[in-house]
Simulated assay, not measured.
Amino acid sequence: MDPITAATHPDPYPYYASLRAKGGLTFDQQVQSWIASSAEAVCAVLRHADCHVRPPQEPVPKAIAGRPAGQVFGHLMRMNEGERQRCPRSAIAPGLQDIDRQQVRAWVRAGFIEDGAAGLHHAQFIGPVAVVAALLGFSPADSRLLSALTRDFVACLSPLSDAAQLHAAHRATGQLQVLFRKRIEANDSASAWLTGICQGFAGVAPNDLVANLIGLLAQTHEATAGLIGNALLALIRDPALLHRIREEPTLIGPLQAEVQRFDPPVQNTRRFVVARCDILGVSLEPGEAIVVLLASANRDPALNPQPDLLLTDRLNRRSFSFGAGRHECPGQTLAMDIAAASLATILERAPQPDRLDWRYRPSVNGRIPVFSDRP
């Protein structure tokens, strides 16, 4: 196992503990990167001004540079620093606080159209994006289309994608751009959130606005699918907990909150050193890369007592699953609301968990289980 393959290992957490025992920030010869594994190191790297989300010499991955998906990638706030990161965030984040949680739950339930593993797949990978699209004022039919297109687009974000997936991602990018431009040009009152976002982007290049709206859907697709899947997996592995949750559905929210710490959908992220700096006594040089093990930091006893126990009533829960510092995800509350509502609906309508098989989707940083009906 190494810090990259650990993301989809059945149980990477003892390995993460061994990395923390070696020191919070160490160099790994196998992956030729620094590894931040402790809570202290992860926090220090994520908050350091000289640790950027992209290497300066490659702001857009070579595999998509110069193509439609690459053009969108280059505008995403999560892939930029400075004003190109702060401006989109300041436009998008405020409206998240005003979203009606009851409406979100209603849309989740309405979108669950199939029973069995097919319905479960829909709940993980289609429903959450459709909910965000609905919040932006799209019709139900367009929301489902946006979900399918987002699924194709996010393939370009993985270094594991093949030529066919990249081609589909570029095609989906063009369709997403058209749909968002039409939605913006409608200039109606279907979405107060979208109206506020457009006002926040006033005076900014239109491509920045459209790209970051696509980015909202992309982040929802990956992270929320993992939140839902890993919570269901926790219940499959613990029948007593499943029974308790079925008896007390109000515990679904606390369960989802604990699972995002205990077994997060994004296991690691990366930072790139842009200037000589010192972090926790380690001297880092420009051009060096750091693999930031969010999942390991979540299990650091210095951050959470009894970190290897899944406790729905955990006090003062702390987590890096949604990042920290200037790139902390502003949509955490919405993602958790969608995930909890989805899990509640799955437990009502999906097959009994012991009738499901599962596997982790191939990824270098995501921990996203995919389920199928057992023969």
Rank of each mutant, 00 (worst) to 15 (best):
D162V: 10
Y13A: 09
R183P: 04
A141H: 09
L334G: 03
K22V: 14
T220R: 00
L255N: 04
L145F: 06
P12T: 13
A169N: 05
C277D: 11
F27D: 01
Q177H: 11
I290Q: 00
V60P: 02
A297E: 04
R270W: 15
L232V: 10
T224F: 07
P94C: 11
S161Y: 03
G174I: 08
V178C: 12
A44T: 08
F112E: 06
V291G: 01
Q165T: 08
N304R: 08
H75L: 11
R261F: 10
D238L: 07
P10N: 14
L315C: 12
R78N: 11
L233Q: 05
A192L: 12
R367Q: 11
S363Y: 11
R89G: 04
V53Y: 01
L235Y: 00
V291F: 02
L136Y: 00
E258A: 14
V259H: 00
R246H: 10
Q165Y: 14
L46F: 05
P56R: 11
A350M: 05
G95C: 09
V370L: 04
L343G: 02
S342F: 01
L160F: 04
F125V: 14
L334C: 02
R86D: 15
G74Y: 00
R299N: 08
E248Y: 06
D208F: 09
A118V: 04
T8L: 15
T220H: 03
F138M: 10
F27I: 05
D28E: 15
V204S: 14
L293N: 08
A190T: 12
P305H: 11
N230R: 04
P159V: 06
S296D: 06
L232P: 00
F262W: 08
V129W: 03
L217Q: 04
G196L: 07
A172G: 03
N316Q: 14
M77V: 06
W193P: 02
A106C: 09
D100C: 06
A339W: 00
F138G: 04
G174D: 10
R314C: 06
T269C: 07
T224G: 09
V274I: 12
A172W: 09
A297S: 07
I35P: 01
R326P: 02
A141M: 10
D354Y: 11
R54L: 01
Q219M: 12
L284H: 01
P254A: 12
F153W: 10
I99P: 00
